[in-house]
Each structure stands twice: as C-alpha cells, then as structure tokens.
Amino acid sequence: NQASVVANQLIPIQTALTLVMMRSEVVTPVGIPAEDIPRLVSMQVNRAVPLGTTLMPDMVKGYA
C-alpha cells in the first residue's frame, strides 16, 4: 500500500508547508504520495487542513 501525505498539525489557510507539518501514512482514500513531501515544502495550502487530514492535490497551490 502506498503512503500518502497527512497533516501532522492544523495547517492554517495560506500557510507555506514545512517538513514538520507533514507525515506519511497509509490511508484511504489515497492522497498526495509521500515521496512528494520534498516537493511540497514551501508550497501553500489553499484551505485550512485539520490534524490527521490527508493532503489531496487540490489542497496545495501549484501542486496539481
């Protein structure tokens, strides 16, 4: 099973992502693949992302 990127904390809207905000976890449905974590650093979320939420491509500006 492929690991996805999951929020390690509440990430407020417009926040630039850092490594400490994300973790990898095998979840359903599958979100952004964990191997993309380095690419996500400094990208902004376009909505508030609660703790434990799987990051989906449409939540990160410039990802999809």
Results as ranks from 00 to 15, higher is better:
residue 11 I to L: 07
residue 28 T to W: 08
residue 47 R to F: 08
residue 14 Q to E: 15
residue 9 Q to W: 08
residue 43 M to C: 08
residue 18 T to E: 07
residue 8 N to P: 00
residue 56 M to D: 04
residue 57 P to G: 07
residue 53 T to K: 08
residue 58 D to H: 12
residue 19 L to N: 06
residue 34 A to I: 07
residue 26 V to K: 06
residue 10 L to H: 15
residue 23 R to K: 10
residue 53 T to L: 12
residue 50 P to C: 07
residue 23 R to M: 05
residue 49 V to K: 01
residue 54 T to M: 04
residue 31 G to M: 02
residue 51 L to A: 13
residue 13 I to S: 13
residue 63 Y to C: 05
residue 37 I to S: 03
residue 7 A to E: 02
residue 59 M to F: 10
residue 5 V to D: 01
residue 10 L to Y: 15
residue 61 K to Q: 14
residue 27 V to N: 02
residue 33 P to L: 08
residue 56 M to H: 07
residue 41 V to E: 06
residue 10 L to C: 15
residue 55 L to G: 00
residue 46 N to M: 14
residue 13 I to Y: 14
residue 27 V to P: 01
residue 16 A to W: 12
residue 13 I to K: 12
residue 21 M to F: 04
residue 3 A to Q: 09
residue 46 N to H: 11
residue 44 Q to D: 03
residue 62 G to E: 09
residue 12 P to A: 08
residue 12 P to S: 07
residue 57 P to K: 12
residue 16 A to N: 07
residue 47 R to G: 05
residue 43 M to H: 09
residue 52 G to A: 06
residue 42 S to W: 08
residue 18 T to H: 05
residue 51 L to Q: 13
residue 27 V to S: 05
residue 48 A to M: 15
residue 28 T to G: 06
residue 25 E to D: 12
residue 46 N to S: 11
residue 42 S to R: 10
residue 55 L to M: 15
residue 30 V to I: 14
residue 29 P to H: 04
residue 18 T to D: 05
residue 10 L to T: 11
residue 31 G to S: 02
residue 48 A to I: 13
residue 28 T to H: 09
residue 23 R to T: 06
residue 2 Q to F: 14
residue 33 P to G: 05
residue 48 A to C: 12
residue 64 A to M: 13
residue 38 P to W: 11
residue 5 V to G: 02
residue 53 T to S: 12
residue 55 L to R: 01
residue 42 S to G: 14
residue 44 Q to E: 14
residue 7 A to I: 04
residue 42 S to K: 10
residue 33 P to I: 08
residue 29 P to M: 04
residue 34 A to G: 08
residue 55 L to I: 14
residue 28 T to C: 11
residue 41 V to P: 00
residue 2 Q to M: 12
residue 27 V to I: 06
residue 4 S to I: 02
residue 22 M to G: 01
residue 43 M to T: 02
residue 24 S to I: 08
residue 62 G to R: 06
residue 43 M to Y: 11
residue 52 G to Q: 02
residue 54 T to D: 01
residue 51 L to N: 15
residue 23 R to C: 05
residue 32 I to H: 02
residue 43 M to W: 07
residue 50 P to G: 10
residue 15 T to R: 07
residue 53 T to F: 14
residue 46 N to E: 11
